[in-house]
């Protein structure tokens, strides 16, 4: 008997310890990020950092304005959102509501497969297929542009949007659909007027998490957006995102330099953006539970 209690105690302690450990790790990472990033502001003002138009980290003295990088991330993310949200929503509606059983399974497997492709592979494929195509179709001097990055990232956001939204559609009670069909509504009327509104919070969460995925993506955008740290004036110009900047420059910087701290400060900005997006997604999901 006491043996068994001892055993229970050990198991519980282990579970507790691993739970605590993960929280501690996250906390440590966060503290480290803050500590290194905030050091920058001993040298550069917050305003100058966020809204400075020039990113020349290795000139003398360095100019560390990340506005071009923020705008680069925004352009690419915005483009990817505009492409992936309607497509993802339409795809989820088709899979969840319209496709017959076998086709549904095939499509779901396809979406899962898309999610399983490593981003570096997608970036590579984009580089050799999409980039030349964009160059030709739009008659540009280079295909390494924001629009290429947007299209590629849309592919990455799609699986997230589709699978989460499909779950949301599945959660809509059958009785709603039956009630609507039995009143003579067509399938499309039922989807548009009843199913989508009742799944709306799940759909918003799906979109938010898809966007979150896009904002944090690094390798693929680094490979195909051209990486020019200038303020982008159109979708057809090269851009550089915040993530790509960190990835490209972290290896070459001197530890403890202003440039080094600036890269961490970019990390804080990224963290803040993804945090807000996840918070909104959570809020959307949670809001529903309160209402029903």
């Amino acid at each position: 008997m006491s043996m068994r209690r001892y055993y229970e105690f050990v198991i519980e302690a282990l579970i507790f310890a691993s739970g605590i450990a993960s929280i501690i790790f996250v906390l440590l990472i966060f503290i480290f990020l803050l500590k290194e990033g905030l050091m920058l502001f001993e040298h550069v003002g917050v305003f100058e950092f966020l809204f400075g138009k020039y990113w020349y980290p290795i000139s003398e003295p360095p100019r560390l304005g990340i506005l071009p990088l923020i705008l680069g991330s925004l352009w690419v993310t915005f483009g990817a959102t505009v492409i992936s949200v309607p497509l993802g929503i339409a795809c989820a509606i088709f899979i969840g509501e319209i496709a017959p059983g076998w086709l549904k399974e095939v499509l779901k497997a396809g979406v899962e497969l898309l999610a399983a492709i490593p981003s570096i592979v997608l970036g590579f494929i984009g580089l050799v297929t999409l980039v030349p195509m964009v160059k030709k179709v739009f008659g540009l001097p280079t295909g390494l542009t924001a629009i290429s990055g947007s299209i590629m990232l849309a592919f990455m956001a799609m699986p997230t949007i589709v699978s989460i939204m499909e779950d949301a559609l599945n959660a809509v009670p059958r009785g709603y659909r039956e009630g609507s069909i039995a009143m003579g509504a067509t399938q499309w009327q039922t989807i548009r007027r009843i199913v989508l509104p009742s799944a709306s919070s799940g759909i918003i969460a799906a979109v938010m998490l898809g966007i979150g995925r896009v904002v944090g993506e690094t390798m693929a955008v680094m490979m195909i957006t051209g990486n020019a740290a200038v303020i982008p004036m159109s979708f057809f110009a090269p851009v550089r995102t915040m993530t790509a900047t960190i990835a490209a420059e972290m290896g070459e910087t001197v530890q403890g330099s202003e440039h080094y701290f600036a890269l961490f400060a970019i990390g804080i900005v990224l963290f803040a953006i993804t945090f807000v997006i996840n918070l909104l997604a959570d809020f959307a999901l949670h809001g529903k539970q309160i209402r029903t």
Binding site: P173, G175, G179, G184, P197
Partner: peptide
């Protein structure tokens, strides 16, 4: 015409299923 038929022949279900509106 199924739409017309179901408009004329309404159905009430075992579990009340008002729409979430």
């Amino acid at each position: 015409d199924l739409v017309h038929l179901r408009k004329k022949v309404g159905m009430v279900f075992q579990r009340p299923n008002p729409f979430p509106l």
